[in-house]
């Protein structure tokens, strides 16, 4: 099994850390993983994206032309990466601030209103975990248990009180998926 994923959005939306959590979850399942961000000034405020590859075998290029899954969290990213989803692949987008919705019919498109949900939950920090929940609902490439195990390993002890909130957001995100 190999999943080639792009996650893209605004800097500050937790794009890179969502990719990191996904990669770490893959590691928990003994997969080969790569995580390659767009780095530099782009990290601060502009658009940010990260390529994550999870595979049972050795991974060749960390840089890709096309993706099995694109998770896009703003209009720019949707415009940029919709054409790069492989036929038969998956595109997940957050509807917040989107004025041109995806049009391709040879891929499966899912809408997730995660940003709206964070307003309801009054917790904008939960955003990327909601999106990750939606992604794992659509493509269960790693288990929720692995995500939580990975989080526990990477979060410093003093932040372990945040684990229940993350789990809740993850499960909530799974319910938010609209096709």
């Amino acid at each position: 099994m190999k999943d080639e994923i792009i996650i893209a959005g605004f800097g500050g939306q937790g794009v890179l850390s969502m990719g990191k959590i996904l990669a770490y979850s893959g590691l928990m399942e003994n997969k080969e993983v790569t995580w390659l961000p767009s780095y530099g000034p782009e990290q601060r405020g502009g658009t940010a994206n990260v390529t994550v590859i999870l595979s049972d075998e050795r991974i060749s290029s960390p840089i890709l032309d096309s993706y099995d899954v694109a998770v896009v969290l703003n209009q720019q990213s949707l415009d940029k990466f919709e054409p790069k989803v492989k036929p038969g692949g998956v595109l997940i987008y957050d509807s917040y601030g989107i004025n041109r919705i995806p049009t391709r019919t040879d891929i499966t498109v899912y809408r997730v209103d995660a940003m709206d949900a964070t307003f309801e939950m009054q917790n904008t920090k939960a955003f990327n975990m909601l999106v990750l929940g939606a992604l794992l609902k659509v493509r269960p490439m790693v288990t929720v248990e692995s995500v939580l195990k990975g989080l526990k390993k990477t979060l410093p002890e003093r932040h372990h009180n945040l684990l229940p909130m993350n789990e809740e957001a993850l499960r909530r995100g799974m319910e938010l998926v609209n096709s």
């Binding site: 990191k20 990669a23 590691l27 080969e32 993983v33 790569t34 995580w35 390659l36 961000p37 780095y39 991974i59 960390p62 840089i63």
Partner: peptide, 10 residues
């Protein structure tokens, strides 16, 4: 190079 330096892997 910048890719190998910035990339995360197992």
């Amino acid at each position: 190079d910048g890719i190998v330096g910035q990339m995360m892997e197992k």
